[in-house]
C-alpha cells in the first residue's frame, strides 16, 4: 500500500515537471515518470490480496511499458526534428563556433 502512495507522488512530480519544465527532453522524461507512477499504483493495488497477485493489471502494465517506449521514441524523434528546424531557422551570424 505504501507503494501506491509512492506512485501517487511520482504522478504528481511528473505532472508538475510536464507543466513547469521548458526543455523538450525534460518534458518527455516527466511523462515517463508519470507513466511509471501510474504503473506503480496499478501493481501496488494488484498486490493487495494475500497469495498470488492479480495477473490482469500485470499484463496491462506490461502492455503499458511497451506502449510508453514507442510513444517516447516518437516524441523524441519529433523533439529532435523541432530542435533542428529551430537551429536551421536562425540567421547564420548567430551561430558562433
Amino acid at each position: 500500500m505504501l507503494y501506491a502512495f509512492g506512485g501517487v507522488a511520482l504522478v504528481c512530480l511528473g505532472l508538475y515537471g510536464l507543466v513547469a519544465l521548458e526543455h523538450m527532453l525534460r518534458r518527455i522524461l516527466a511523462v515517463n515518470v508519470m507513466g511509471t507512477g501510474v504503473f506503480l499504483i496499478l501493481i501496488a493495488s494488484a498486490a493487495r490480496a494475500e497469495g498470488a497477485p492479480d495477473p490482469v493489471p500485470h499484463a496491462m502494465v506490461l502492455t503499458g511499458i511497451v506502449v510508453a517506449v514507442s510513444a517516447t521514441a516518437l516524441a523524441v524523434a519529433l523533439a529532435c526534428r523541432v530542435a533542428e528546424q529551430e537551429q536551421e531557422g536562425r540567421p547564420e551570424g548567430e551561430v558562433k563556433p
Binding site: 499504483i41 493487495r48 490480496a49 498470488a52
Partner: peptide
C-alpha cells in the same frame, strides 16, 4: 482514491 481502496481483494485472479 488509493486510501479508499478496499484492503483485501483478489480482483480477477
Amino acid at each position: 482514491a488509493v486510501a479508499n481502496l478496499p484492503a483485501q481483494q483478489a480482483g480477477l485472479s
